[in-house]
């Protein structure tokens, strides 16, 4: 003598999942727009210093007018002793060179930069002086190693350099 009709089929009513793909697609598009693709994972560990009033590198990345150099402690802790000042990792030298030690060599930077530039030549019509070289360094890196890189870049006339940092919130006025 129940007042409510019982569902004759026993189980609960089915939930319509037809709009689930739409929701997921919405999420997908959000992430596609809001994020940028990761470059190669560096072979060194680094903690970037924090600073304010920086410039966003995204436009340069979109036009692929930027190359990255990483400076930090080697991932393999057994090699840490070899590089007291910090090891160097160029984003793709590991793939082009058979000698793993090249990864950590400042002498190769000029060569690396010109190689990268030659690969880009077809895409951009900018001179090598306009292609940014971004240095991502650990906060304890002595500036010496960065200056060595600068000199090498100067030799190949790649005259735009960027010092990467993590952005920190604004100081309160």
């Amino acid at each position: 003598m129940s007042k409510f009709k019982k569902n004759s089929r026993g189980g609960g009513p089915t939930v319509n999942t037809a709009s689930l793909p739409d929701i997921v697609f919405m999420l997908l598009f959000y992430f596609m727009v809001a994020t940028t693709s990761k470059e190669v994972d560096p072979t060194v560990k680094l903690i970037q210093p924090k600073a304010r009033y920086t410039e966003d590198l995204t436009p340069y990345k979109q036009r692929s007018e930027i190359d990255f150099i990483y400076i930090g402690k080697p991932n393999k802790s057994s090699r840490e002793q070899e590089f007291p000042e910090g090891a160097l990792s160029l984003d793709n030298v590991a793939q082009t060179s058979r000698d793993p030690d090249d990864l950590y060599n400042t002498e190769k930077i000029g060569e690396w930069k010109t190689q990268k530039f030659d690969a880009k030549k077809l895409k951009t019509n900018k001179p090598i002086g306009e292609i940014v070289t971004c240095i991502k360094a650990d906060k304890d890196t002595p500036i010496n190693i960065i200056w060595k890189i600068r000199e090498k870049l100067e030799d190949v006339k790649a005259l735009k350099i960027a010092y990467a940092v993590n952005q920190k919130g604004r100081k309160k006025e």
Binding site: E55, L57, C134, L153, E154, I161, A164, V165
Partner: peptide
């Protein structure tokens, strides 16, 4: 494959 944080830097001329 993507990161949220944008690369921030100071661009200087040598």
């Amino acid at each position: 494959t993507t990161t949220m944080e944008k690369d921030q830097a100071y661009i200087r001329d040598i």
